[in-house]
């Protein structure tokens, strides 16, 4: 085994206590929040007896002491049982598995948009530093960072759905157009089944939410690419290449970009975590059936098992992506150790 491999295994082992910690933290955290899940479950109807509520509480172990509940929960978790949702009357695992593909798809497309827009913008800004291109590009990127996502989303709906009628307001796919479900990612399924109609339809639904969510990331990517490009353009080997008479364009693309992309990769890694974990508002606006909306709803209705499981999924994603970027990173720059 190479040293890198050993390090990767070490990192994976180190992730286990983190995951355990996250689970326990989520568990305690949810129980600190005031509000009784059983009471919420009963809604507003009259004629609810205390016995009825007590029996429900017992059914979900909520009548036991906190440490006992935690032990019971962890015990089941090790057996792969994430519990039963208090509000949705279904096993938590089913709910999560159903929502994850939608969230992942949206995150991927947001990222794609961010990269397609951000990297060229960053390169152009660096290449023509302090020019009008640079100024406008960077000012736009600030706009992307500082405008709340829901505002951008609603503007998008008003302009592109209502005004121009190009895109649907919300949802994930037109009824009847959905491709056969293989991965759960509509676009990918459409590609696999060579269903161009479904692909087109899915992309139309994806466009607005992906742009809304990707705008902020695009801004960050553009800014990081710009600053690292500026730095890379000043390094000795780039200067040397220039002195040797290599054309400007070649220097920019071939020599500077490869190095400049290193920090961009890291940023992208961190942003994927954000995209997956911070998308609840965009999902709400666009009625996107993803995990973010479920989590917010679950917190507000004190659906303990569901929140705990979702937090676990987020944390796992975060850990995995961090590891992946680090590995990719060593690949780009072998000098670095994990």
């Amino acid at each position: 085994m190479t040293r890198t491999q050993v390090q990767i295994i070490e990192r994976i082992l180190a992730a286990i206590p983190i995951m355990l910690g996250v689970v326990i933290l989520a568990f305690l955290f949810m129980r600190m929040i005031p509000g009784d899940p059983v009471d919420i479950m009963m809604g507003e109807a009259g004629g609810v007896t205390h016995e009825e509520m007590a029996s429900l509480r017992a059914q979900f172990d909520l009548d036991k002491s906190l440490p006992v509940q935690l032990v019971l929960y962890l015990g089941r978790l090790f057996k792969g049982d994430m519990g039963y949702s208090l509000q949705r009357a279904r096993p938590v695992k089913e709910i999560i598995l159903e929502a994850v593909p939608a969230t992942v798809e949206l995150a991927l497309f947001s990222l794609l948009f961010a990269l397609i827009l951000g990297i060229p913008l960053g390169i152009a800004s660096a290449r023509y530093q302090n020019s009008i291109v640079d100024r406008i590009g960077m000012a736009t990127s600030f706009l992307g960072i500082s405008m709340p996502g829901f505002w951008l989303g609603i503007i998008g709906i008003i302009v592109f759905s209502l005004g121009l009628g190009w895109l649907p307001t919300s949802g994930r796919i037109t009824y009847g157009m959905a491709p056969k479900s293989i991965t759960g990612l509509m676009t990918l399924d459409a590609l696999i089944t060579a269903n161009t109609g479904a692909l087109k339809d899915a992309l139309r639904y994806l466009a607005l939410p992906a742009v809304t969510m990707g705008a902020g990331v695009a801004a960050v990517v553009a800014r990081v690419t710009r600053s690292s490009m500026l730095e890379a353009l000043k390094t000795d080997y780039v200067l040397f290449a220039k002195a040797k008479g290599v054309p400007d364009r070649t220097v920019t693309i071939k020599h500077a970009l490869r190095n400049a992309l290193i920090p961009t990769v890291t940023v992208v890694g961190l942003q994927v975590g954000t995209l997956l974990g911070g998308n609840m508002i965009v999902e709400t606006i666009f009625g996107w059936p993803g995990l973010g909306r479920i989590v917010v709803d679950a917190i507000f209705s004190r659906d303990y098992p569901l929140v705990q499981a979702a937090v676990m999924v987020y944390a796992l994603t975060f850990v995995v992506i961090n590891l992946a970027t680090d590995i990719f990173y060593t690949y780009l720059n072998p000098k670095m150790t994990l």
């Binding site: 307001t169 919300s170 949802g171 709400t284 606006i285 666009f286 909306r293």
Partner: peptide, 21 residues
């Protein structure tokens, strides 16, 4: 066919109605 769609945001709901969705 009858379809129930969840659109939690009021503005979007109204926009979807105006757009005929």
């Amino acid at each position: 066919t009858a379809i129930f769609r969840m659109i939690p945001e009021a503005t979007v709901r109204v926009a979807a109605l105006k757009a005929g969705e």
